[in-house]
Amino acid sequence: MPRRTAAVIATALALACTSYAAVAGEYAPLNCRKAGSPSEKTICGSYALGQSEARMATLYAVATSLVAMGQRGDIQDAQRSWLASRDACGDNVGCLTEAYDKRIAALDKVIAGIASRGPY
C-alpha cells in the first residue's frame, strides 16, 4: 500500500473514532451477553469470527462517517441486507466466515474509493 494511501486511511480511521458514537446507533458490534440467535452465539464463541465482527463494525463506522448522505443510505441498506444473510448462516462457521469476508471486502472497497479521490 502506498505511503500516501496508508496516511489517508489512518486519518480516516482517526476521524471515524471521533464520530463513532453517532454512527454506533446505526450498527453496534455484537453484545455477546445478549447473543440470542445461533449465528450470534457462534460468532461470540469464535475468536476469529469475533475479530471479523470487530473489523467489519470499524470499517462500517469509518465508511458511513466519510461518505455523503445518499451513499451512506446505500451502505446502511446493504448492512441491513448483509445482517439478514449473516443470520441465515445459523451456526455454520464456514458460511459466517465467508459472509464476513465479503462484507469486509465491500467496505474496504468503499474506503479505498474515498482514499483514491483525495483531497491530500
Rank of each mutant, 00 (worst) to 15 (best):
A7D: 11
A78F: 02
P29V: 12
A112V: 00
R4G: 01
A22R: 14
S46E: 00
D91F: 13
E40Y: 04
Y120M: 07
P29I: 11
A61F: 09
D101I: 08
A84Y: 13
K41T: 04
T18G: 12
A84K: 09
A106N: 01
G94P: 07
E40C: 06
S81W: 02
A105L: 12
A48L: 15
A106C: 03
G45Q: 00
A28T: 13
L15G: 15
V93K: 12
Y27I: 02
K41G: 04
V8T: 03
S116E: 06
P29E: 12
R72I: 00
C89H: 15
C95M: 15
T11N: 15
R117Q: 14
A68S: 08
A21W: 04
T58P: 01
S39L: 05
C44R: 06
A54E: 11
R4K: 03
A105T: 14
G45I: 11
P38W: 09
R80L: 11
Y20D: 04
A21K: 12
A7T: 05
A35I: 12
S19E: 13
S52R: 12
G45C: 13
A112E: 04
L96Q: 06
Y120T: 03
G70W: 08
G94L: 14
L30Y: 08
Y120F: 15
A6T: 15
R86G: 07
S52T: 07
A112T: 12
K34R: 09
K34C: 01
I43P: 06
T18W: 08
A10G: 04
C32G: 02
Y27Q: 07
Q76T: 05
A115N: 04
G90H: 09
P29K: 05
R80A: 02
A105V: 00
G70R: 05
E53T: 00
G25V: 02
P2K: 06
A68D: 11
Y120G: 14
L30W: 11
A78H: 01
S46V: 04
R80N: 05
T42D: 11
A21L: 09
A6N: 02
A35L: 09
A57F: 07
A78S: 01
Y20Q: 15
A14Q: 14
R3F: 14
Q79G: 09
Y20C: 10
G90T: 07
S116T: 03
M69V: 04
I104M: 06
T18P: 02
I9C: 06
Q79W: 00
T64L: 12
R4N: 14
V110Q: 07
A84H: 12
S65K: 10
G36E: 07
K102D: 08
T97P: 10
D108N: 11
R4W: 02
P119V: 01
R55K: 14
I43Q: 05
G118K: 10
V62F: 11
L15S: 01
D77T: 09
R72D: 06
E40G: 13
V67H: 03
L107P: 06
D108M: 03
V110W: 04
R55S: 00
A48S: 11
I43D: 05
G90F: 07
S85H: 13
I9W: 01
A57P: 10
D77N: 08
A61Y: 10
A21I: 06
A57G: 03
K41L: 10
R33M: 14
A35Q: 09
A68Q: 13
A12D: 08
